[in-house]
Design a protein around this nucleic acid. Sequence first.
DNA 1: CATATGTCCTGAGAGC
DNA 2: TGCTCTCAGGACATAT
Length: 279
Amino acid sequence: MPELPEVETMRRGVAPIIGGKVVSAVRTACSRKPIAITPRIEEIHQRLVGQAFVDVGRIGKRVIAQLNDNQRLVFEPRMTGLVLLADPPTTEHLRFVLVFRQKKRTKRLMYWDRRGLGNIRLFHEEEFHEYFKHRLGPDALQATGDFLKQQLGHSQREVKVALLDQKAIAGVGNLYASELLFEAGVDPRTRCNRLSQKQWGRIADAMVRILNEAITYEGSTLSDGTYRNALNKKGGYQNHHRVYDRQGEMCPNCRERKIIRIVQCQRSTFYCRKCQKKR
DNA sequence: CATATGTCCTGAGAGC
DNA sequence: TGCTCTCAGGACATAT
């Protein structure tokens, strides 16, 4: 499930290769029910062919490829989407292909998505800013304690649930929410409006630290093996998770209590009762 | 307005 | 073996 570190890894893999490249063709490629692509593929083809990519950026869990006429092509992988340069895990779930023809060799940027819950959107510049203005908060790597407190400090939601709200802060998903709250020593069930300034500071610090650490390992490839970097290689951070999917194991911090699993908003949360106490 | 729930989708794994 | 059922969860639509 690509969250910020996985999407950043895809971005880093793709950026140096497609920067400056001119699009020669756009294709959909899938026998399955098509994923959401906006606008229609014919219009995307007409608007992209002949344009060059000038930058590949990211906000939260989206890859944002910018063209020289300021259009933005946005990939949102959601659960199982991958942005790839190398051949995908299966040809069956390949959904979208950009072709770059150079002198001799042809390069491709592919979007592969097993479950097909992701989407691709092409925006004009103003359209892009308008669309995300009320949908996405600042990127989670920019988090500070003051900002999180200002955004979420009055919410009555449990903090782990609130951290998944992309309008407040963009990039934290279910896996890294558990990991960063463990790092911060905060009980995931604590209501946001019960958290102290100091705790918000610890949460922000842990957020930036954990996400960056996961980026250095190129993200987490879980037991289903779905997530891959742009070259179709597995990430390595799953071997460094402290709590995620480790219920029943001893807490790596106190080594006294076992990690437990609870459910919040129909999603799994993992934490240590001793190391993550309220207040 | 804030918060909670249902929905999409596929494949892995459990249970019989 | 082979079937059916449940579950995983990101973001949005709809309900409370």
